[in-house]
Amino acid sequence: MTLQNADVHVWSGQEAEDASGAALLAQEKAGRRRKRGQIIASRLLVLVAILGAWEISSRTFVDPFAASMPSLIFDRFLEWLTDGFLLGNLAVTLMESVVGFAIGAVIGISLGLALSFNDAASKVCAPYINALYALPKVTLGPLFVIWFGIAIKMKIVMAAVFVVFLIFYNTWSGARDVDQGLVDSLRLMNANKREIARKVVLPSALVWVFNGLRVSFPLALMGATIGEIIASKRGIGFIVTDSAAQFDTTGVFTAIFTLMFVAVAVDRIIVLTQAHALKWDEASSAL
């Protein structure tokens, strides 16, 4: 409160010396709102400019057969939306991603925590984990087809494999990054190892875990779609390959944009959950 008043006092010193404090606060608030409005307007402007340029060039000198154009994509979007084709396939991809993500998260978090509490095991496993982390996961696709077939199971495994290492890594680093001062302060209160783990290590790793989850959901989508592109009869990845096989670029773009919307929406959900769960953490709640 005092800080805010001081701020106002400094920047409005010359311009409004006789204005009352309340008026200054209102003025400051209005200014902030104006700035926010300007940013949103500019964002929309960028979007309109890009779509406009695309539309115009496709109508003039670029072949729409190769590049499609926003108006066609929008029409196709509405068409697929009304006949249920889009939602049906989206549901499949989302189901694969979410289930794979959940499996990967559970395995990653538990493995990360388990290893962080065991220093020797950490050291022994580190090079192997690094090797698996560095491996381009796409190369596992054909193997998974042999093991799990081409049905939904394979895509779920792909999604899980794409996220598990990142989540594991974040959890592991988070749990090892715990402030030793906090641990010592609990030791001084005569806390045992379990209490320290529960009251210090877990909550402090949570920030990292959430960041890991946030970064890795798009990876789950990626894993699921790649699985679908390798072999499938349903899902957004299927729409992409099927449309491309018919040289239907509009269909490809429609699928891509749909996936993008979904990824952004899920990201917002995770961020809001994070802001709520980590209210105490300024960086998390400011996202």
């Binding site: 402030d179 001062g181 302060s185 009251k199 210090v200 909550p203 402090s204 980590l278 105490w280 953490d281």
Partner: peptide, 10 residues
């Protein structure tokens, strides 16, 4: 201690 050892999430 010298450093702040309050648990930030509590």
């Amino acid at each position: 201690t010298q450093h702040d050892t309050l648990l930030p999430w509590r």
